[in-house]
Nucleic acid binder design. Structure first.
Lengths: 234, 234
DNA sequence: TCAAAAGTGTTCCGTCTACACCCATGT
DNA sequence: ACATGGGTGTAGACGGAACACTTTTGA
């Protein structure tokens, strides 16, 4: 079978937006770009799709190549395609995003491209339209996290309710009522209480919980209401 | 500035999934494919992105080219990129979807590619992975329509509440309680009651309403609850 | 004993559901 | 008069918001 003739083929890249939580703040992972133009400037982890790989495969390969991170669940969320978004040559970019527990992946991070975590409001200037991508990804994150039990994934195996609350407060840049938050959270039935307590952040100590994995998977699409008035944040 | 060397460029298409409502049922618009392979088989409206157009522009151009439809608000929703999805040559497809009032666009439809509306459960076989695209788009439609005032757009300027309910019931393939539906709907404040009644479908007659346009625009992102237990439908 | 953080109880209120019932009108 | 579909009223369950209060323990 012959090819489609007379049509223009285009470079297609994927860019990965990786949000992480270190227990206190939400951060974004960026690397130093390895090729001209804009070499050594801060950039999302990006690269070109190869002839025989799917966009999902490309995103995973590129993330590992640039940072060393493996087995991160990323979701495709938008194609950026302004014809002039890359000054060198027209390039479409399929953007992916993910959320991770920074400590859990700490050891995997390779130094080759100098990956670095930045606080959202201390982000350096990013190349091309990457700042716009981050903005849209954050919006998407807030949207999904307001409706579904998504942020639970950013925490270590065992975590306390105040930690999870800090995470939500980080994502939405606001404060929630501790008392209602914990009650709502427990009422979801997604958590299993452990006997151990975390005594570091308070005198009373907060019980550790872990995800009820099977419950979590079957309720992943269910609607939560941990964030009051979510539309306020979009 | 030179080009990126050593990278493979890929064909990129857009495909448009157009859902329509004729007052009774939800339908999908498809055309007969104009080129080999699979020429004359049923297909979504698709075509290749040109060098200097954005994906959004391409989707609009292609929709008009294939069907004659102009000024349809479409939303990008997913990239389909399995390397072998097009047997001729690797092609990525950026899928767009939209919802329209069939009657409103009836006159614009051009006959060149034999566009035709099919009921969702009477769809012919579609080429490539187009059936999968439709399935995902329908899921997306149900998701968004359960949360936001989206379906209102599918109706003519003036419409009755039972008509709107029939539309929701078509999208979710189920029945809602008429009494609660109309009360919830009115409580959104998005509708303006007209003095005229539609007497065709009942003896008592149902009042016509129209969208309160300014309200609608500012509340487009607000959350509705016209669909009980929406997670049931995903 | 006091301070600090975790977490529970309680009250108020608005919203959803289910369903009885009333309304308007063509036949 | 009565059948038909359009719509309102109402009672009970439920869940969220606000906030007083109790619990635990280190200093």
């Amino acid at each position: 079978m012959q090819k489609y003739s007379g049509e223009t083929r285009i470079l297609v890249a994927t860019d990965c937006i990786i949000f992480g939580f270190d227990g206190f703040k939400i951060k974004l992972l960026v690397v130093q770009r390895g090729l001209e133009p804009e070499k050594n400037k801060w950039s999302l982890m990006g690269g070109f799709i190869q002839p025989s790989e799917s966009p999902d495969d490309a995103a995973n390969r590129i993330l590992e190549l640039r940072t060393g991170l493996k087995n991160v669940y990323m979701e495709q969320f938008h194609v950026f395609g302004r014809p002039d978004r890359d000054p060198v040559e027209r390039t479409l970019s399929i953007a992916y995003f993910a959320l991770i527990d920074i400590h859990k992946y700490e050891k995997q991070l390779s130094e080759e491209y100098h990956p670095e975590w930045f606080l959202l409001n201390e982000m350096p200037e990013l190349i091309f339209d990457h700042a716009e991508m981050v903005k849209l990804a954050l919006r998407q994150l807030r949207y999904k996290a307001a409706l579904h039990p998504l942020l639970f994934q950013l925490l270590p195996e065992k975590f306390t309710i105040p930690q999870l609350q800090a995470l939500y407060e980080g994502v939405y840049q606001t404060k929630f009522d501790d008392r209602n938050f914990s009650r709502k959270l427990l009422s979801t039935g997604l958590l299993v209480k452990l006997s151990e307590k975390d005594k570091l952040s308070s005198k009373k100590g907060a019980f550790y919980y872990q995800l009820d994995q099977s419950h979590y998977e079957e309720n992943f699409e269910s609607f939560l209401n941990l964030v009051p008035n979510p539309e306020k944040f979009f």
